[in-house]
């Protein structure tokens, strides 16, 4: 039985806790939150021990893996401590806030001989996997251009740290990292990126990041992320090649449509896609459990999470300077 120490009880911590409950061979043994009440509450729900101190949790519990669902600024210290205790780490995206931090995290887990599994969950969304398999099957020939869109409400939960760039890295690192990772994984390394950021807080919070990437293969990507979209959470991907075109738009792919006279759902901390048919977080965590049990190689290599971070940082730098940035190849 793989014993998980779940660090963080925000949107992702809760989502992960629910997923673990359905995955055989894994148990949430401990729950960590600096807000002890929250830790106690979730720990009681999943039958785990609550902690408000990381070292205390690592010391007291014989954990196999720490699942880090804390704000991004706390990823590095959490991963390094877990590695010191010989724990594997499942780490939410983005890996961290700087390339140097990411390199240190990878080095720490390497030195400890433990896995660093980064939650680039879009790899596990079935629609994105279907596009990836069609690409592999040669159904669109050589890919030429990729358009990706991800838009949802502005993350505005009671403890929202997402809009604080020092905590989350901002929209390029926190939201668009999903699409940066997917684009790099399928179209190869980035050569340069140009990005713009539009942000307003009055009369409503609106943030939109727009990035254009030239890959070294010559393929092009244009990626848009929106916080503050007034419509439902939406993703769109279009992958066009010299032999065909693949499209998916979440607003046109609705296997279940429910109309009911219920109160509108309270918006959570962070906008999430509809998980009611297939829960990709469960698919992702089940895969990570397989990796930890030695049954699979991780689909997300830490070096890839670092490359996505590097691209997101270059995009953010481009938006800040209004100059295209060369994307450096970073050594892990």
């Amino acid at each position: 039985m793989i014993r998980v120490g779940l660090a963080g009880t925000g949107s992702m911590g809760l989502t992960h806790a629910q997923a673990y409950a359905t995955i055989p061979g894994v148990v949430v043994a401990a729950v960590l939150d600096i807000d002890r009440d929250r830790a106690v509450q979730l720990a009681a729900t999943v039958g785990a021990h609550p902690y408000s101190d990381l070292d205390a949790m690592l010391e007291a519990e014989k954990l196999d893996v720490v699942d880090c669902c804390l704000p991004t600024a706390q990823h590095r210290i959490t991963v390094e401590r877990a590695a010191q205790y010989g724990c594997h780490v499942i780490c939410e995206k983005p890996l961290t806030l700087t390339v140097a931090d990411g390199q240190a995290m990878i080095a720490a887990t390497r030195a400890a001989g433990t896995q660093l599994l980064v939650g680039q969950v879009v790899r596990f969304f079935p629609e994105f996997q279907r596009i990836a398999s069609a690409l592999r099957e040669g159904r669109i020939g050589t890919p030429v251009s990729l358009t990706m869109l991800r838009q949802g409400s502005s993350p505005g939960g009671s403890r929202s740290w997402y809009l604080d760039e020092t905590q989350s890295g901002g929209i390029f690192l926190d939201m668009m990292i999903h699409d940066f990772d997917w684009a790099l994984h399928h179209l190869g390394p980035a050569e340069r990126v140009y990005a713009r950021l539009v942000q307003r807080f009055e009369p409503r919070a609106f943030t939109q990041g727009m990035a254009t990437i030239r890959h070294t293969s010559g393929a092009l990507s244009q990626i848009t992320g929106t916080w503050g979209h007034p419509g439902p959470f939406t993703t769109m991907v279009e992958l066009a090649g010299d032999g065909g075109l693949l499209q998916h738009n979440s607003s046109e792919s609705t296997p279940i449509i429910l109309y009911a006279e219920t109160a509108p759902r309270e918006p959570g901390d962070v906008p999430l896609p509809d998980l009611s048919v297939t829960n990709p977080y469960r698919v992702e965590l089940a895969h990570f459990v397989d990796v930890l049990a030695g049954r699979a190689e991780s689909l997300v290599r830490p070096e890839e999470a670092l490359a996505a971070l590097s691209l997101a940082l270059s995009a953010r730098a481009s938006a800040a300077t209004n100059q295209a940035q060369v994307v450096e190849v970073v050594a892990a």
């Binding site: 050589t142 030429v144 251009s145 713009r196 539009v198 990437i213 990507s221 066009a240």
Partner: peptide, 29 residues
């Protein structure tokens, strides 16, 4: 603008992504 001729391999561009900024600051992709 990033441009390419990857779709049809012809003498002119057939693929492009533009980002246009208006005087007011409106950004258009």
């Amino acid at each position: 603008a990033e441009i390419s001729n990857g779709f049809h391999h012809i003498a002119v561009d057939d693929a492009a992504f533009l980002t246009i900024t208006f005087r007011s600051g409106v950004v258009v992709t």
